[in-house]
Structures are given as structure tokens and as C-alpha cells.
């Protein structure tokens, strides 16, 4: 049961804050590595996490157009992984 006095908006923002805590924990993998591929995967998961946080913020702050930012991030999060994978395979063939 959600206490009506607390409000659903607060609940959404609090969940977003918890997801940021998860992001900090996930960042351990980005620091520890040991290879660049591990770090890339960690940041990719962080990107997916970001989309969730932005969607929760859109619901919590009552601003539906934040979902546009989430969509752009969902699209662009993919780009960095592709670029770095291409870079490691072809050694310099980024574009």
C-alpha cells in the first residue's frame, strides 16, 4: 500500500534516487575493469539505467517531454558501444 500522504510523485523520485545509488554501485565495474571491454559493458548498463531514471523523473516531476530525452539516450547509448567495438577490432576504423 502506498501512503496517499506521501504521494506517488515523491515515490517515483525516490525510486529514481535508488536507481542512482545502483548506478554508483555499477560504476565499480567501470573502475575495476580489468579490460576496456568490461568498462564499456558497465557504461552500457549505466546507459540503460539512465533511461529508467529519466522515465521515472518524467513521471515524478509530471513533465512527459522528458521521455524524449530518454528516447534519445536509448538510441545514442548504442552508438558508443558500436564505435568502440569497431575501434578495437579494426584498430582506428571508427567511421
Amino acid at each position: 500500500m502506498i501512503d496517499p500522504a506521501v504521494g506517488l510523485d515523491e515515490f517515483f523520485v525516490a525510486s529514481a534516487a535508488l536507481f542512482v545509488v545502483l548506478a554508483i554501485m555499477m560504476f565499480y565495474r567501470a573502475i575495476a575493469g580489468p579490460t576496456t571491454q568490461d568498462r564499456l559493458l558497465a557504461v552500457n548498463v549505466l546507459g540503460t539505467n539512465t533511461v529508467v531514471i529519466l522515465a521515472l523523473l518524467a513521471a515524478g516531476l509530471g513533465e512527459p517531454w522528458f521521455l524524449d530525452v530518454a528516447l534519445i539516450y536509448a538510441l545514442l547509448n548504442f552508438l558508443m558501444a558500436v564505435a568502440i567495438s569497431k575501434f578495437t577490432v579494426e584498430r582506428g576504423g571508427v567511421l
Partner: peptide, 14 residues
């Protein structure tokens, strides 16, 4: 550093 900078950019966007 480039990969981790991507994570920084995620945080700034939020």
C-alpha cells in the same frame, strides 16, 4: 577514460 567519460555524460544529462 573515453568510456568512463560516457558515464559522466549520462550523469550530466540526468
Amino acid at each position: 577514460a573515453i568510456v568512463v567519460f560516457g558515464a559522466y555524460s549520462l550523469g550530466m544529462a540526468i
